[in-house]
Design a binder for these strands. Structure first.
Length: 493
RNA sequence: UCCCCUGUAGCUCAAUCGGUAGAGCGAGCGGCUGUUAACCGCUAGGUUGUAGGUUCGAGUCCUACCGGGGGAGCCA
């Protein structure tokens, strides 16, 4: 791509990021920075304080501009909250108490103006609900800048953790035709709708709306054999089954990508599009799986605490005043492992009434999980060996004939953050389980092949990235820890 | 999908029993100041989500729709 000189100089004009200057900038050096103005305060003695933020850190750089700066009088009027500027000047030690260094401008360029009358972000606190409506501007706020940096760090840490252990990063498909993964409602991927729309317009030139029947994917008029992929295709709800293919050939591996669920969920913990990490390990049994999950969560917490200290301090002060204490607590103690049966015993003998009765064989309700992790143990717990009747077909069946080797990691405040299991690797058991679950073994021919040829015990789990971010940041709504949340009735931006 | 709450100035909210629309912050102007959640004064800013209904009179009560939030289920 050919770049104009002007663009070239815009790109190359910046010599430093603000974070760099605040931590290690040498007084006396000449630097050029660019970013967005948070506030400006004028002194009547003919100079201005500009708080400049370029997104590299929580703290901004204080810029001092006076009337020796060329064009100061005209330029400074446009230097307002939201505008973008580029400043060249000398870094000096600051007499002010709140920063080590500040930038004394020699030149000040107003790159992009911003009308403070209409710029939605003001020099005041905004509600998260309001900021959600301006998701294109919210990363310019302290909170969402910090979330972006922590999210970036966690993503980095995920790769660091697995790569340092020799895991392979595997790209499992986004579009899948195995519509039987059982993890939830799926979004259909089809080109039939635009075809039927075109046909509808041909046949009925007056009407812009195709008939409802021809567009209803559930109606018999849609023939997926004529669709793009020749069969019904969907967005993935999990890369697990494909990850198992690679785990049983190239060894321990992990996926990290977007996942889609078409559930009509309206909660602070659910998204229609979210990011999930799914490691899958050959020769791992359930205990090994639990051990890895615990080490993984602890690693990510430590990594963020070390590398996002300012942002974490901000979350602790402004968002959730116990978040640092909670995280340190989690890192220090071993996760408590209890079987589902033990969990039921604890709940039934807790001496309190439940909105939903506790009974062996039923799923643990949110109130039950919250009691266990927040009140009874007050730390992360791993519940394992769930009743087989309430778990998917691929989980390893225990000898008791009643339970499978499933595990859920539950953490205070967030609830379930990891779900996983040891996989059923015995061909005959898996086949009968597929039938038991009312599924067709034919559909799983390749999955069964893995058990037919060189099967090994293996296990894996899924970590929800956004739920991990809720735990790390203390934020309460999952829609605020992903840049552009997709939820029922909302896919703006 | 179900239950509950909610929609008033740019933002966050108030408005008693149904009786003529208010504050703080933000913004503009002025003052003060090596300031930094700045401070002091003045000014502007409204079809109370939309459409109906009840009433002499509706921000307030009723109905429908739309939006937002919380909880439940599903799960990560």
């Amino acid at each position: 791509m050919v770049r104009s000189l002007e663009e070239e100089s815009l790109m190359s004009g910046i010599t430093h990021r603000v974070a760099q200057l605040l931590s290690e900038g040498e007084p006396g050096s000449t630097v050029t920075v660019g970013g967005w103005v948070r506030t400006r305060r004028d002194s009547k003695q003919g100079f201005s304080f500009i708080e400049l933020n370029d997104g590299s850190s929580m703290a901004g750089l204080q810029v001092i501009a006076d009337n020796t700066v060329p064009g100061y009088e005209e330029t400074i009027k446009g230097v307002q909250t939201g505008s973008s500027i580029r400043v060249t000047g000398e870094l000096k030690e600051s007499p002010g108490a709140k920063q080590r260094v500040e930038l004394h401008a020699k030149s000040l360029e107003l790159v992009g103006t911003s009308d403070v009358e209409t710029y939605p972000l003001q020099k005041k606190r905004h509600s998260f609900e309001f900021l959600r409506e301006i998701a294109h501007l919210r990363p310019r706020t302290n909170t969402f800048g910090a979330i972006a940096r922590v999210r970036n760090r966690v993503s980095h840490g995920i790769h660091t953790f697995f790569q340092s252990r020799g895991f392979l990063y595997v790209h499992t498909p986004i579009i899948t035709t195995s519509d039987c993964e059982g993890a939830g409602e799926m979004f259909t991927v089809t080109t039939l709708l635009q075809e039927s729309r075109a046909q509808g317009q041909e046949s009925r030139a007056e009407s812009q709306e195709p008939s409802a029947a021809s567009l209803d994917p559930g109606s018999s008029t849609l023939d997926y054999s004529t669709d793009f992929f020749g069969k019904k295709a969907s967005l993935t709800v999990s890369g697990q089954l494909e990850a198992e293919i690679y785990a049983t050939s190239v060894g321990p591996c992990y996926t990290f990508g977007p996942t889609f669920r078409a559930e009509n969920s309206n909660t602070t913990r659910h998204l229609a599009e979210f990011w999930m990490i799914e490691p899958e390990m050959p020769f791992y049994e359930l205990d090994d799986n639990m051990q890895l999950a615990e080490e993984f969560i602890k690693f990510l917490i430590n990594d963020v605490l070390q590398n996002c200290a300012d942002d974490m301090e901000f979350f602790n002060q402004r968002i959730e005043k116990t978040v640092l204490e909670t995280l340190r607590h989690i890192v220090e103690k071993d996760f408590r492992r209890i079987s589902y049966t033990e969990a039921v015993d604890i709940l039934t003998s807790a001496g309190r009434s439940w909105d939903y009765p506790v009974e062996w064989g039923h799923n643990l309700q949110a109130e039950h999980e919250r009691f266990l992790t927040e009140e009874h143990f007050q730390q992360p717990i791993i519940v394992y060996d769930y009743p087989r009747a309430i778990k998917p077909f691929y989980m390893y069946c225990n000898d008791d004939g009643k339970t499978v080797r499933a595990m859920d990691v539950l953490v205070p405040r967030v609830g379930e953050i990891i779900g996983g299991s040891q996989r059923e690797h015995r061909l005959d058991v898996l086949e009968s389980r597929i039938k038991e679950c009312g599924l067709d073994p034919e559909e799983y021919w390749w999955y069964l092949d893995l058990r037919r040829f060189g099967s090994v015990p293996h296990a894996g789990f899924g970590l929800g990235l956004e739920r991990m971010l809720l735990l790390l940041t203390g934020m309460q709504n999952i829609r605020d820890v992903i840049p552009f949340p997709r939820t029922p009735k909302n896919a703006e931006f």
